[in-house]
């Protein structure tokens, strides 16, 4: 998609998640009280309001919820067109994650997909998506 990726502006809740992605780990937070997985990272469980949690590596997989083909230039340094997908996570059905599409064929609604870790440089890895093997 991009000649130069827009770098994420991380925050105090999310920085560790990005570190784990850079290390090649697909992790979610799991609530220490009720077990509900959550993404993006934050301190309290939205279900039981528990403050105990841990990182848990989960299956880097999901299904295509939707997708777009972006043509209009919105950002400098980006080559259009490109495909952005919205993926509902297999390990956390309440959660969706975005990424660029790394498949040969266009995505299909409901298609099973897996994460494709894309190292942009030493400091940044992004998660893209491709058809499940």
């Amino acid at each position: 998609m991009s000649a130069e990726a827009i770098r994420p502006v991380t925050d105090r809740d999310s920085a560790e998640w990005w570190d784990r992605v850079r290390a090649g780990e697909f992790a979610l937070q799991r609530c220490g009280s009720c077990g509900t997985p959550r993404f993006p990272a934050r301190a309290y469980c939205h279900r039981c309001r528990g403050a105990e949690w841990s990182w848990e590596p989960v299956e880097p997989a999901g299904r295509i919820e939707s997708w777009i083909v972006s043509h209009q230039p919105f950002l400098p340094g980006v080559r259009e067109p490109y495909v952005v997908v919205m993926v509902r996570l297999a390990a956390a059905p309440e959660c969706v994650m975005y990424g660029n599409w790394r498949g040969e064929e266009p995505p299909r609604a409901g298609q099973r997909v897996e994460a494709a870790f894309t190292a942009v440089d030493d400091g940044l890895t992004l998660i893209d998506w491709r058809p499940a093997a």
């Binding site: 998609m1 991009s2 990726a5 827009i6 770098r7 994420p8 502006v9 991380t10 925050d11 809740d13 999310s14 993006p40 939707s66 997708w67 777009i68 972006s70 209009q72 919105f74 950002l75 980006v78 490109y82 952005v84 919205m86 994650m97 975005y98 990424g99 660029n100 940044l124 992004l126 893209d128």
Partner: peptide, 20 residues
């Protein structure tokens, strides 16, 4: 906070979000 999970993929503008 959500922008960091979207902008790196070129997903930034309302028409993209509504198209999705």
């Amino acid at each position: 906070p959500e922008v960091q999970y979207q902008a790196p993929y070129g997903y930034v503008a309302p028409p993209q979000q509504y198209a999705m």
